[in-house]
Amino acid sequence: MDMSLFLVQLLNGVQYGLLLFLIASGLTLVFGVMGILNLAHGSMYMIGAYLVYYFASATDSFLLAVIIACVIAMIIGIIIERFLIIHLYNRDHLDQVLLTVGLIFIFNAAQSFIWGNDPLGVEVPELLSSSIQLTDIVEYPVYRLFLSVLCIGIALAMYYVINNTKLGMMIRAGESNREMVENLGVDISKLFTIVFAVGVTLSALAGIVSAPIVSLVPGMGERVLISCFVVVVIGGMGSIKGAFVAALLVGIVDTFASVLLPGMSSMTIYLLMALILIFKPQGLFKS
């Protein structure tokens, strides 16, 4: 592998990792703050992608479609938290798993009912549809570079909110000791609604922005859910920083393994997970 090829592959890995982070961040945020294991996280990724497909063709504007889809996702998140999750805070993870697996079925049925079962695609927005020449033969789509920048932006924004705002302070406090936060007079139920809605919206946003570079098919949510869990487990359940590092690690390892160890590429990320868990059973950054 020569240098330029190595760099292109590294770019592939980082770009994939950043996207993984965007998907996984919502899951780890919700788990870390609320202790809720949301298996329907992947479904929101799917719903986001289908919503942007629908509104992009209805409004002819990708940006407008992104905004509408995000708003709808947030509303769905609020509804799910207010009417369903709210009953589960004092129950164990098994009940949460049952409920959120039920939600997966509902979202899948809704997707199939509304949009049918044929694979769909979303056009890359005009402004970002060009490519940059990297080597003599490889071009890199501008949209993918834009995605990476967007993911880094979101990561920085999350970092800022969590470390430098009052909301972030409450989130951090909630992560370490929920009862204490409540006793200090914070309206924990409102905090939970916000966090859940944001978590769900992040997942939907990941689906929304990846819609132009993936194909929209039934069951696409379950597929990302697995990689998502690998990232969250490696990073440490509930740690945003951990999710970021783990996502990049998984992205890069997966990319290089697929080229260098073709026969084993499907197991390398699980191997990586197993190795890390042997030495760090709580993940890289246990919050």
């Binding site: 592939n12 993918r144 990319t255 697929s258």
Partner: peptide, 14 residues
Amino acid sequence: PNTEFQSYLTEIAS
């Protein structure tokens, strides 16, 4: 059913 093809496409290009 992996659909992350970037690394393979880069290899084909080389």
